[in-house]
Design a protein around this nucleic acid. Structure first.
Length: 293
DNA sequence: TCCCAGGTCCTGA
DNA sequence: TCAGGACATGGG
């Protein structure tokens, strides 16, 4: 990979295992949106970043060279996905899933934002999750800038959400998750350092801690661990992963926890990557969905 | 109108 | 331990 800078652009050449659609549409993040020209614009920390892809050349717009370390971390650029694919490519099903979502990378997202985002994901659809997060950001985040005619805001701080009234959070269409969000914000304010140290805890310690929040159960906790706390040995089971696993790997009435254990045993320390390839493959192809005639 | 969504929580056996 | 229902919201 080669890195070049040009004004407010950072250009990467010869990038492997990198595809914008795969990365942004595989359900791990909710603040990236496709522009008419096929590029994606999103918010990372307090920066609005636009990304374009031309084959194995990636162009990051609206960002200076001083922020390359942020990109490197967020897009997991130092990780060798060739090695990961080789490790999880255990059978023909995984082979197909990896070929389908060959450009997936697990983004390194902020813990606080990921906690709230996946609390919102409970019993919700991805477009609605994105809408609620956008509403919260417009209402409680800090204005960053206008980019291509659209205003962008940071993800709300825990302080701002803790101070918000329940009605204000409800106005963002959070529904029954609103009180959970407010409570989580208040608690996070007190335990911020602890949360940011979960990446250094054992998986079990992290899981137990996260599940002690109201609104964080097994699935959401595992997503938070995987997407923001560098615990890649977990295999979150949601409706899509349940379907693809029950269709292709395990008995139809296997429980989520047992599916997770089965997969974690099968894929080991790369379970999280395997889960993302399967999730994207299942959702995009409607695996296990009953078709109407 | 009914069903369901990257679930979680509560209740009653 | 575990099945079953409630929970806001909105799209199909």
């Amino acid at each position: 990979m080669e890195v070049a800078e040009k004004g407010n652009k950072i250009i990467l050449n010869k990038v492997q295992d990198f595809n914008l659609t795969h990365m942004f549409e595989c359900g791990q993040c909710f603040r990236w949106n496709k522009e008419e020209d096929g590029s994606y614009t999103g918010v990372v920390e307090n920066k609005v970043i636009n990304v374009e892809q031309f084959g194995d050349t990636i162009v990051f717009n609206n960002i200076g060279s001083q922020d390359y370390s942020l990109l490197k971390s967020y897009f997991d650029l130092d990780n060798d996905y060739g090695k990961i694919k080789k490790a999880v490519n255990t059978d023909s099903i995984m082979n197909e899933a990896i070929e389908f979502g060959y450009g997936i990378r697990i983004l390194n997202q902020d813990e606080w934002e990921t906690m709230i985002s996946f609390m919102i994901s409970a019993n919700n659809r991805i477009p609605m999750i994105k809408r609620v997060i956008e509403n919260l950001s417009v209402k409680f985040g800090e204005f960053i800038c206008n980019y291509r005619g659209k205003d962008y805001y940071t993800f709300p701080s825990p302080k701002r959400l803790a101070e918000a009234s329940l009605d204000e959070i409800l106005e963002c269409k959070a529904g029954f998750r609103a009180p959970r969000i407010k409570k989580a914000a208040s608690r996070f304010l007190e335990e911020r350092d602890l949360v940011y140290s979960i990446k250094d805890m054992t998986y079990d310690e992290g899981l137990t801690y996260l599940k002690s929040y109201e609104g964080i159960g097994d699935k959401v906790a595992n997503c938070i661990l995987l997407f923001s706390m560098k615990h890649f040995d977990t295999f979150p089971v949601d409706v899509w992963v349940r379907r693809v696993m029950q269709e292709l790997y395990v008995d139809k009435n296997t429980k989520d926890k047992d599916i997770r254990k089965f997969a974690e045993n099968k894929f080991g320390k790369y379970s999280g990557y395997a889960q993302q390839y399967l999730f994207y493959y299942a959702r995009e192809n409607g695996i296990g969905v009953k078709r109407k005639k």
